[in-house]
Design a protein around this nucleic acid. Structure first.
Length: 830
RNA sequence: GGGCGAGUGGUGGAAUGGUAGACACGAAGGUCUCAAAAACCUUUGAUCGUAAUUGGUCAUGUGGGUUCGACUCCCUCCUCGCCCACCA
């Protein structure tokens, strides 16, 4: 048995004995830190620079590092370590998304200032993060709530204002009439204000918007996935969200009026079956066209609709309401009169704020028509008729459905017909082709305290004036009342609010609102490159070297928010000439969720939360890392298992116990086959974020090694190297032990296993000299043969026919065909 | 209502057209021990059967299809999960 006692350059004693991870993990973390092993800059060689930028969505500093954080970060860490061993200069930074509502909620609940609460949490979480033993380079840490960061939020916002991307607009918001303030959705409980319990209403409020719709076309994903490797599901979801639709804007004349009502449709063919028009209550046309005798009722309806909260509108989703204006529009296609109604199922901010009702082909239109006894006409166009689904079709047919068909549409399919009808309507001058997007401009104002102050000044003379760039940052004041009534928190600090207008020099007021935290997280990965850069939001030279991201890990919940905003910012930066690429991330990988042992989402109230600190104390960091890699695919969701956790500890212990059995010697052909196969498999799997099968392959190799009489040094060393991204501590310990017993050079400068090169594999050794071929008859397995890999088909057939099991099935039958897949299958078709 | 994804042993999962269940957990039996734990060994999809211990049959949510061959590709239906939703 080999035991070694020695001193490394950091005077740490190492003795091989029983495996106690707690004895070695902290020690190595300190050694690595002291040696600056994971500093990005220390990796850069003078000659060739091959960058790899790994990014994980920056976490919110909620206070506790959750096992979910570990799960999220292990795969990126494994990949980063692997890439580094392959010779890349790996940049793996980290930061905190530190502004936001939870800090303010905690402050209100417990009386701690949001800043103190947040900074304390960051400290705690950073310490917990360090026990993970990642190769994150903490020199690049970026915290979004610090002035050195949000200064550049303000800079970007002003640039957006100058370019017309940031603008002042109006939108409906949750409004508490008692507190006189806008509420976040999470502060509306059952339609009531969380603080005072008053009924929340929808009110038009002035807000800052970002004109993301200007980029709608550019943000769309094309068939080639914009040349980057993002999940198809994300591309589809974002495209659906952007919601590009090409259709017609049709104007219908109103009987006895100069006015016209304009609607949008992507299916003008169905307009043969249009039987009514519905206007949004907010549509200005309502007041103009309503007939005097209907005025009272329509006004009453509009008033009720405006008082409804968003929640109430949704709750009664099925029951339609409305009022008849007394006016009629003329359907060009049929010449029929269509009554014009007002209804709150029509949205003012989509399309034209008016729609044409086709009850037979749209469920909502049907519900409306059914309730108010309007006509329902079914349209049959072309040879196949209309294919659009309507769930209540039977009812439609019962209720005086009429078939309409036009001569010029006979015998063509529905898509052609739609095109022809479009052309016809345009030709007649009734409508024009338009492209519509579902995407709305992004509202970024928040009437909250804990965020980036909007860098704008309100002057009675000059209106809204941006803060001069050399006066940034507009610092967030520490002293405010963060639950005032009737005004946003920042407005409670009079001294802070007072400012002179940069244009006229007269007294003016600061903007008291703060920016949505999604603004902060839209560009932080640029800042990571050099968080201390002073001449702009990021260093263009360094960014050119490191961006775009090679891989971006994060959660699926950010598909329609964060990742879309980040793409938008990048396109904006490109327009400013600050970057030269269109997509900020070459690859996107989404993670799943670790559930509690009971299969439920972890939550304090359920008491099923797994605390990484506790598990590490019991099993050590490495075992937890290996378990998180092995437990399930990265994008899966599944429960934590304590007994499986034991299994991972057992695995590492077996690796540990291999060490005394290692000796110098020659590998056999089979040894080489096992080694090279595993090296290849593990490397390939890590590159594809399939760490569960990578670990499985190593377990298999360990089983092989363990069963042998002797373990050769070469295979042991390679085993440690390929295991090191998963279990960095135990592999380092064994590596150093082995190195010392190997040579007498205990005083050499420290060199870590994590600086080793990833072992190469020899493909010629992965091919074994014998293979097992399955012999099938009509696709049914009948026998397996072990043959030399180079065997010819005729030879294999010959051998197969000798087999008793095959003979039985071939007797008296004619072989019609033989299919041979070399080295795999021989199939007789009889 | 729409979109996306998934359904494989007691459990987590492997296999993306070629021997289904790799690897692990759990369980059962055994070795060691005064005993227990640890460790190690054996078995472990179901079923029939025999000693044929490289036996037969059936099996990847359901029903069909394509193929010499389907967990894998196509269609029907069912279930679950996630995201979005009065979007004209």
């Amino acid at each position: 048995m080999k035991t070694t006692e020695w001193k490394n350059p950091h005077n740490t004693k190492v003795t091989w004995g029983k495996y106690f991870p707690q004895d070695i993990e902290k020690k190595w973390q300190e050694v690595w830190k002291e040696a600056g092993l994971y500093k990005f800059k220390s990796q850069i060689p003078s000659s060739k620079f091959q960058k790899y930028y790994t990014l994980v969505e920056l976490p919110y500093p909620s206070g506790d590092l959750h096992i979910g954080h570990w799960f999220t970060f292990i795969a990126p860490d494994v990949l980063s370590r692997f890439k580094r061993m392959q010779g890349y200069n790996v940049f793996f930074p980290m930061g905190y998304d530190a502004f936001g509502l939870p800090a303010e909620n905690a402050a209100i609940k417990r009386g701690i200032h949001p800043q103190d609460w947040t900074l304390k949490n960051i400290e705690t979480m950073t310490a917990q993060f360090e026990t993970m033993g990642t190769m994150i380079d903490w020199d690049h840490v970026t915290v979004t709530c610090l002035p050195e960061y949000y200064k550049w939020n303000q800079w970007i916002f002003i640039k957006m204002f100058e370019k017309g991307i940031a603008y002042r607009g109006k939108t409906l918001s949750n409004w508490c009439p008692t507190d006189q303030t806008v509420l976040a959705n999470e502060h509306v409980e059952n339609g009531k204000c969380w603080r005072c319990g008053s009924v929340v209403v929808q009110k038009e409020v002035e807000q800052w918007f970002l004109r993301i719709t200007d980029y709608a076309e550019e943000l769309l994903w094309n068939r080639e996935g914009n040349g980057v490797d993002w999940p198809k599901s994300v591309q589809v979801a974002q495209n659906d969200w952007i919601g590009k639709s090409e259709g017609l804007e049709i104007s219908y004349p109103i009987e006895g009026s100069e006015e016209k009502v304009t609607i949008f449709t992507s299916r003008p063919d169905t307009n043969f079956g249009a039987t009514f028009i519905a206007l949004a209550p907010e549509n200005p046309l309502v007041t103009i066209i309503t007939r005097p005798e209907r005025k009272e009722e329509v006004e009453k309806y509009v008033k009720i609709a405006s008082e409804k909260t968003e929640l109430e509108r949704k709750e009664e989703g099925k029951e339609k309401s409305g009022a008849f204006t007394g006016a009629y529009a003329i359907n060009h296609l049929t010449g029929e009169k269509m009554p014009i109604w007002v209804s709150d199922f029509v949205l003012m901010n989509f399309g034209t704020g008016a729609l044409v009702g086709v009850p037979a082909h749209d469920l909502r239109d049907f519900d409306f028509a059914h309730k108010f006894n309007l006509n329902i006409k079914r349209v049959v166009v072309g040879k196949d008729g209309d294919k659009s689904p309507i769930t209540k079709r039977e009812q439609v047919q019962e209720e005086d459905g009429i078939m309409i068909n036009s001569d010029f549409l006979d015998g063509i399919d529905i898509h052609e017909a739609t095109g022809k009808i479009m052309d016809y309507i345009v030709e007649k001058g009734w409508g024009k082709k338009v492209t519509m997007y579902h995407l709305h401009d992004w509202s970024v104002s928040r009437q909250r305290y804990w965020g980036t102050p909007v860098p704008m000044i309100h002057c009675d003379t000059d209106g809204i004036v941006p803060v001069p760039l050399d006066q940034l940052p507009v610092t967030l004041p520490y002293d405010v009342d963060y639950q005032p009534k009737g005004k946003p928190p920042l407005a409670s600090n009079d001294e802070w609010m007072k400012v002179t207008c940069p244009k006229c020099g007269k007294d003016a007021r600061r903007d008291a609102e703060t920016l949505d935290t999604f603004f902060d997280s839209s560009w932080y990965y640029y800042r990571y490159v050099d968080p201390s850069f002073r001449d702009g939001p990021f260093d263009p030279t360094e960014v050119k070297k490191l961006m775009p991201l090679d891989i971006y890990f994060g959660g699926g919940e950010h598909t329609l928010g964060h990742t879309l905003y980040a793409r938008f910012f990048t396109k904006f930066f490109k327009d400013l000439g600050m970057v030269n690429f269109d997509e900020f991330a070459l690859k996107r990988v989404q993670h799943g969720i670790v559930l509690g042992t009971d299969g439920n989402k972890m939550s304090k109230s359920k008491g099923n939360v797994i605390n990484p600190d506790d598990v590490v104390k019991e099993f050590g960091t490495d075992a937890v890392r290996v378990y998180l890699s092995f437990m399930m695919p990265y994008n899966a969701t599944g429960p934590w298992s304590v007994s499986s956790m034991y299994g991972m500890f057992r695995f590492l212990k077996r690796v540990w116990d291999l060490y005394p059995r290692v000796t110098a010697g020659e590998l056999t052909r089979e040894d080489k086959f096992q080694m090279h196969t595993t090296i290849k498999k593990v490397g390939d799997d890590i590159a594809e974020t399939k760490n569960n099968t990578a670990v499985a392959a190593m377990m298999k190799w360990l089983n092989y090694l363990d069963a042998k009489e002797q373990i050769w040094e070469e295979e042991f060393k390679n085993f440690l190297i390929i295991l090191s991204p998963f279990a960095p501590h135990i592999t380092e310990e064994l590596w150093q032990l082995n190195k010392l017993s190997d040579s007498e050079a205990g005083d050499e400068a420290f060199s870590s296993i994590h600086q080793e090169k990833w072992p190469s594999h020899d493909n010629s050794l992965i091919v074994s000299d014998t293979v097992t071929v399955a012999v099938q008859i009509n696709g049914k397995l009948r026998d397996t043969l072990v043959i030399v890999s180079e065997a010819k088909q005729s030879d294999v057939e010959e051998v197969a026919k000798q087999s008793e099991k095959v003979k039985v099935h071939l007797e008296g039958k004619t072989v019609k065909k033989v299919i041979y897949v070399p080295g795999k299958i021989l199939n007789f078709v009889i």
